[in-house]
Amino acid sequence: MDVAVRDINDDVPGNIAGKQVNDVADPGTGTPASLASVLAALGDRVAPVSMAREQMLPVAGHVTKLFSEGGLVRGRVLSCRGMAATSASLDLVAAAVAAGSWLAVIDVPTLGLDAASELGVPLERIVAIDTSLGGKTTAANVAERAARWADVVAAAADGFEVMLTRVPAEVTASTVRKVATRLQQRGVVMLVLGDPGPLVCDGVIDTIDQVWSGVGAGWGHLQQRTVDMSASGRRVPGRRCVSLALPFGAEVTSSEHDAAATALDNEPPLLSAVS
């Protein structure tokens, strides 16, 4: 709410607002009719309307197709699944973090930072939080750990606009509801890797298929993959699909797709003799 009001204030260009206020103040021109229209115009401006643009974090151009709103809607929880889940989650948050949001990585100690950087996530705005406190999770402290996870997420919601996390298995449904409410209040986008457990996800980003290119039977190296991603879930009308080349982020057309699919069967590139 306070965010919306602040942004609206920013939104009113100083000169226009000033001009209108002058009109109102001037008794010569201030007829009741114009006053009413000015007030109506001002009222429209300061009304707490929910502007879709204000409630969204940007995503890179090639994944906008996955979202009917064209971006990551604040306060939502997305689950990333499938073979390219981690890369997909990084790809989704890259534009938002690059635009100045901070990313909290909670309980994902295996995050590959090189990959994050290649996908365009500025590493200087990543903070990792480990709720296991370095100890192994045992049957005895599992509930304590789940409670700590919820506390950490709630505290991180104040300072971070994007979160990437794994949900601990033992977290209870009531705790998770509190966490979700908190995320919604603070307008945080949370991406969940792995099993979300009792956490209700607003959308699921799934990797349907991926094809690697650049590597063969003993030659080459991994160069690129085409990933078919889909978005579905309770907040996603219908099912949206996109086919992407990672890590370069271009949308793949079907002919390129086929070329990549057959790349694996190709012979290694032969060296040609130079005379």
Partner: peptide, 21 residues
């Protein structure tokens, strides 16, 4: 905001649990 949040998170967990690359 992030810097403030980091301080609070360190209190909640421990100094070593909140890290940056």
């Amino acid at each position: 905001q992030a810097a403030r949040s980091v301080a609070r998170l360190a209190m909640l967990t421990s100094d070593e649990a909140v890290t940056v690359p």
